[in-house]
């Protein structure tokens, strides 16, 4: 019995590794070095503690996937430099602010994060807009 359990475990592990490898080969939007630097700024100031991207992250602030559509870089600069009752003021330099903006612009163009725009199918699945 134990040997057949071992076989099941091996088959599952092989399937899991194959699935992981397939995920790595999927075509996906690719961005330049500014985007990577901007993501580091996002992580350095721990924006994810309060904000979300694609609905993933903290709940205290709004989702920022499409925030660049609101008012571009000036809006972002104003928010970062003045804060809000919940949000602290961040002292970012101009390069960090530009990189963060490019990161958020990249996120905006990567897809749609608005759940209300998704379509549902009769089997309970969904399709992107």
């Amino acid at each position: 019995m134990i040997s057949s359990y071992r076989l099941v475990l091996l088959v599952l592990a092989a399937l899991f590794l194959a699935y992981t490898a397939w995920l790595l080969t999927l075509p996906t939007p690719y961005y330049n070095e500014n985007f990577v630097r901007g993501r580091r700024v996002w992580q350095k100031y721990n924006c994810q503690a309060c904000h979300q991207l694609y609905g993933l992250g903290g709940f205290l602030g709004p989702d920022l996937t499409h925030v660049v559509r609101k008012g571009g870089k000036p809006y972002l600069k104003a928010m970062v430099e003045t804060g809000s009752p919940n949000m602290p003021v961040f002292k970012m330099n101009d390069t960090e602010l530009s990189d963060l903006f490019l990161f958020l612009r990249g996120m905006d163009s990567s897809g749609c994060a608005d759940p209300s725009r998704f379509l549902t199918t009769p089997d309970g699945n969904i399709t992107p807009p």
Binding site: F16, Y19, L26, T28, P115, G124, N125, I126
Partner: peptide, 29 residues
């Protein structure tokens, strides 16, 4: 083994709205 299959393949329910391959959503579902 049922728990293990879920550990390996059901994580996609965290990212249904992410624009990844449709199969990721279906497998996870």
């Amino acid at each position: 083994f049922l728990g293990l299959v879920n550990l390996m393949f059901n994580w996609g329910h965290h990212i249904y709205i992410l624009p990844s391959h449709g199969a990721v959503r279906t497998i996870s579902y």
